[in-house]
């Protein structure tokens, strides 16, 4: 790993979708640098392009213009095998809909990335148990996702994202399907990981509770960065913003 202070950099990233003959510009020249160990929230209303930006940074889709650098490596230059390596070990993903494999138990879900990383089964299982204990699900190892609550499923997903010790955790609306209290717990868990393990956390969200824990907030509107705020600048406004839905 390079000692560079930036873990993610995007340069003029653009993405266009063609639907039924009309071209939609979801991202329009996004320049964003994210420091190692930072907690960044990408905020914006639905349709602002934050999920698209999330997919670009995570290498889940290809931009139509500009480039994304992870640890100073241009993702556009990577072949399928290198991209898979990156997704497996450098980035951990958390989704709004959890995206657990429904037929696998919590432990099997968490162990899956270690299988893809080539870790021996026993080590993978040990790692999985350790992670599930860490997120407070040590007694739910052999439950299927359908037997867990939304908050518990998201905890499994967080444990899974950590399986191969990634440098970055990408979270797309991690609290979108959760109630207020559970959402808050998940946010605190992410913050804890960020503080204790030094994992960079990038979260696309419109949950204002996130502002409390973020180092920086990137506001996106119509595919463009509207403004970037340091946590210190908005500390005073949090109380007023809570409860206001954007």
């Amino acid at each position: 790993m390079t000692a560079n202070e930036y873990v993610v950099r995007t340069k003029d990233v653009a993405k266009e979708f063609t639907m039924g003959g009309t071209t939609l510009r979801a991202l329009d020249g996004v320049n964003l640098d994210i420091f190692r160990g930072e907690y960044v929230s990408i905020m914006g209303p639905s349709g602002s392009g934050k999920s698209t930006l999330f997919n670009m940074i995570g290498g889940l889709d290809k931009p139509t213009g500009g480039s994304v650098f992870i640890n100073d490596v241009d993702m556009a230059q990577l072949d399928a095998q290198e991209l898979a390596y990156l997704r497996c070990r450098t980035i951990g993903y958390i989704f709004q809909t959890f995206n657990l494999i429904p037929v696998m138990t919590a432990l099997e879900n968490v162990t899956l990335p270690t299988i893809f990383a080539g870790m021996p089964t026993d080590d993978g299982t040990e790692r999985g148990i350790e992670l599930l204990k860490m997120v407070g699900l040590g007694d739910r190892l052999n439950h299927k996702p359908s037997e867990l609550s939304g908050g518990q499923q998201q905890r499994v997903a967080i444990a899974r994202s950590l399986a191969n010790n990634p440098a970055i955790i990408l979270a797309d609306e991690p609290t979108g399907n959760l109630d207020l209290k559970t959402g808050k717990e998940i946010i605190l868990l992410l913050k804890e990981l960020n503080k204790d393990h030094g994992v960079t956390i990038i979260s696309a969200t419109h949950d204002l509770k996130m502002i409390d824990v973020s180092d920086r907030i990137v506001w996106i509107r119509d595919g463009k960065i509207e403004r970037i705020e340091e946590r210190s600048e908005i500390d005073l406004q949090v109380g007023e913003l809570e409860g206001v839905e954007s």
Binding site: T2, N71, D72, V73, D74, Q77, L78, Q81, E82, A84, Y85, L86, C88, R89, T90, I115, F116, A117, G118
Partner: peptide, 23 residues
Amino acid sequence: MVADSKRGVGRQIHLPLGRAFLI
């Protein structure tokens, strides 16, 4: 285990067929 490529990113390993079979 993984040879680092020039670009500083490793290449994902191919899992043995037996692993896919078990899954």
